[in-house]
Design a binder for these strands. Sequence first.
DNA 1: GACAATACGGAACGTGGTTCCGCTTCGCAA
DNA 2: TTGCGAAGCGGAACCACGTTCCGTATTGTC
Lengths: 201, 201
Amino acid sequence: MPAGDTPSRDTQSRTRRVDARRNEKTLLDAAARVFANQGVDAPVRQIAAEAGVGVGTVYRHFPQRSDLVIAVYRHQVDACVDLGERLLGRGSSPLAALEEWVDAFVDFLVTKHGLASVNGGQADEGGLHAYFLDHLVPVCERLLEAAREAGETSTDIGAYELMRGIGNLCLFGGDDTRYDARKLSHVLLAGVALRREPRAD
Amino acid sequence: MPAGDTPSRDTQSRTRRVDARRNEKTLLDAAARVFANQGVDAPVRQIAAEAGVGVGTVYRHFPQRSDLVIAVYRHQVDACVDLGERLLGRGSSPLAALEEWVDAFVDFLVTKHGLASVNGGQADEGGLHAYFLDHLVPVCERLLEAAREAGETSTDIGAYELMRGIGNLCLFGGDDTRYDARKLSHVLLAGVALRREPRAD
DNA sequence: GACAATACGGAACGTGGTTCCGCTTCGCAA
DNA sequence: TTGCGAAGCGGAACCACGTTCCGTATTGTC
């Protein structure tokens, strides 16, 4: 999130009409319900229907579809950030902390079926992509840096790259029993953890 | 492409009308051109326009959009299969062979901007997904098995899982200079290569 | 109670994949 | 060569989406 972007303070401000505030909450709840049932790709119209409002109302509160997704999952992303900071404070191995943190992130993505694909969609630009990465990358960066300082990794992978990689691994892993995003993220982290002779890049 | 080339005996069969065969080739060429310029997400209508035919004609030859994509890239997939077999025949380290093969696959995906996303799209089922994986997974399986027998990997990752993982890593890496799918695939393979104490899964 | 400002609903628009069907072209056979 | 059925063609039409627009309804204030 760019500087100066005030969080939800504005959104919840009491300078707004009561019906507007009520509808926003209704929408958030409805969206959470629909996303849980049918994945984050559910049509906007359906969320509007579930909330008992018109689509116009949805777009009044959330100018783009992705803003709604962000709003629904914002607190989970924040929780992830908090977890990262707690893990950093903990004395144990930075690499173990990174691994635990990534596990939590992967769980989050996998649990909400299809959430990751919102990141992956080519025509995203801004919206979700920005929010998720802007918040998570700095935490990841610090975890990675700590691991580097502790000599537990020698990889030159950046935090942004790692986050995107993890996110991509979580794509489309939902109902396919042959594909386990968690397992693959572990393999990727194993590659991050101990890199022997670097291959010619 | 002269007769007796490779696969689609039926498609190229001479029981079909000449205009039909001509149009199929025209379409394939047009699609290749459009895909190269604007990525594999280019609208069907545009491919039809580029070929100078109606959309109906596109769908006559390729019942689904993804069939067209498959047809355009089929020979590259086949080349990848061939490479895998050549590498298997070669005497050197199976793991090195696997790495070289994956590099070639990643190059293929990254070069055609957005190709990988066709795999990733949730509502795919069948089509491209099936063709790519059905052909590539067996080769990957043999490379992986060879590496396992040579004691160069102890991972329990399956070939399908690995292919999907690699494919996912190649998503949306096109114009983002901060994200290098090749580098991430190397990290993933590093994790495959030497796995120390397995983490609790 | 009246009047802005604010918010709402849902029809309408643009864009995408896909289908349908009347018309054209081809290939064979008389 | 011509006739005719089958194969193929074009593109309008359909459906599903995200998003925009605007006439109407609601709210808060004086």
